[in-house]
């Protein structure tokens, strides 16, 4: 979608800034906020590039560098940590051959860590884009990841 089409859905008001940045990032095929995205948001909200840049770098859901089609967010908060999220992270790293914060060569997956995702009843848990997957202690990651192409 054209960026101007996205912006039209929102009033140019400060309280819409995060909603606008989410929408621009979701629209970016590489799942990040490009320089152009930030410029256009700043222009639309009548503020400076540096203001938007400051906001983007504060929040963990926004990225300034290109990411894969699917963002894997593994919960690493105390409950998941107690239930072996460290092992889960290691296994995913090995399976996808990437480190935390990196993207696979085929641009499919980016691995990130997240604070509590509110799935503590099914720890350890993670999200792949909007999907939530819990009870990861004894799962076959191959069968999970092959659903995401």
């Amino acid at each position: 979608m054209e960026r101007s089409e996205i912006l039209k859905q929102f009033e140019p008001a400060n309280e819409n800034m995060l909603n606008i940045l989410h929408a621009l990032q979701n629209n970016n095929s590489q799942n990040y906020l490009s320089e152009e995205d930030i410029k256009i948001a700043a222009n639309y909200l009548n503020t400076t590039y540096s203001h938007i840049y400051g906001v983007v770098t504060y929040y963990t859901m926004f990225s300034l560098k290109p990411r894969g089609k699917y963002i894997i967010r593994v919960c690493n908060s105390p409950v998941c940590n107690m239930e072996n999220s460290t092992k889960v992270i290691e296994e995913i790293k090995r399976f996808l051959s990437i480190e935390v914060g990196e993207t696979t060569d085929d641009k499919r997956f980016t691995l990130e860590l997240s604070e509590c995702l509110g799935r503590c009843g099914k720890a350890p848990g993670m999200m792949i884009n909007e999907d939530v997957i819990g009870n990861l202690d004894n799962v076959d990651f191959k069968s999970i990841f092959e659903n995401y192409n």
Partner: peptide, 10 residues
């Protein structure tokens, strides 16, 4: 009433 999204900050 409007919904505003956070972006990953405790």
């Amino acid at each position: 009433v409007e919904v505003k999204l956070g972006a990953g900050s405790y």
